[in-house]
Write a protein that binds this DNA or RNA. Structure first.
Lengths: 188, 188
DNA sequence: ACATTCGCTTAACCTAGGTTAAGAAACTGT
DNA sequence: ACAGTTTCTTAACCTAGGTTAAGCGAATGT
């Protein structure tokens, strides 16, 4: 819970009361490797704070191939964001790649607080804007950079992750085949 | 101004007062073809509502090549969004591809209203979430689809645009060379 | 009206990266 | 400890798409 409070402090200035109200919505849960936090086709309305472990968000194309969209490492908010905000069926899966400790809250309960605690809606706005900026950066990288360069960026953005998860997960995140990642790595 | 009010109504329920306060921040401007609404390197804090014309958002990689990120067609809010929200130097350019009519507001003046008019901050949150969902969709398409399929999606999402703007702008949006787009088009 | 620039297509050639498959190495469960 | 499963690498082969350049028609400026 303290990690969550510390993380919040980096995002927004909350009073003691706001912090308590917000944090009290979260309950700790332990997940095992390969457990799912969200599955495609469901209507997810959970927001999680990841305090330990590694998770991935991925989707499947029509042929069933998986593509990793994001990796989550602590501290981070984790959610099937588009599904929550658009109220549509979830398109993505969120799964643990290692054992994970998360704190989970019902997003609808958070939304219900917007009226009495506008700063909580501010937080939602800040998070959405932040996530937008990250997506934009990634979009640019996908269009302008070669796989090799995206691999270098991955290593900088997720230090240590490389040794923690499978190569084919990284390849999938980079938008290339494991074969190609292997080739890139082979050239030192 | 009426288009703006109509568009707002689709996004959020505003009272008469909220609508007036919000809309009064906007002033109409006419832009010519090739005029810029935002340039990289600047600190932009303008939000525009596009009521007529076509605009593009693009960025340049280190070699100076341009990549189209988005096309804007009316009705739409247009802004160097990441720059505004992160307060960092603008990385993207926004330029008219045809003569345009826009209504422009200073984003800081909008932000200043959040306190007295929380629904205006709700609008900002809704816009950010909406933009995030669109980006996510595009990210998925970039990783999973072939250029040909992305071209088909482009035509569905921007009907008529194909005849209004240059092919090389479309190619750039699809992340391919004009040569390749020409090849794709040649195969019926 | 003419010259110039711009946009589109096509061809030739090249490269990044996909696919399939096989073998080696590292984990896993019992 | 062993068998079975996963993961990673490598090789052979193939394709999407890049680059350069040439030619042609359409748009544009003076």
């Amino acid at each position: 819970m303290n990690e969550l409070k510390t993380y919040l402090r980096k995002l927004i200035y909350f009073t003691e009361r706001e912090t308590e109200v917000f944090v009290s919505l979260f309950a700790e849960i332990e997940l095992k490797k390969h457990d799912y936090f969200a599955k495609e086709g469901e209507y997810s309305s959970k927001l999680a704070f990841l305090s330990e472990g590694v998770m991935r968000a991925f989707f499947r194309n029509t042929s069933g191939n998986e593509y990793n969209k994001t990796f989550f490492t602590p501290p981070a908010f984790v959610a099937a964001y588009s599904s929550i905000t658009t109220k549509r069926k979830n398109l993505i899966n969120i799964q643990c790649l290692t054992p994970c400790s998360i704190f989970v809250a019902d997003f609808d309960k958070i939304t219900a607080l917007y009226k009495d605690f506008p700063k909580i809606e501010s937080l939602a706005r800040i998070l959405a804007e932040y996530k937008f900026a990250i997506k934009e950066k990634r979009e640019i990288e996908l269009v302008t950079l070669e796989a090799k360069e995206r691999y270098e960026i991955f290593k900088k953005e997720y230090p240590d992750l490389e040794n923690l998860i499978s190569q084919y997960h990284i390849a999938s995140y980079l938008g290339i085949s494991p074969t190609q990642l292997s080739r890139i790595r082979a050239k030192r």
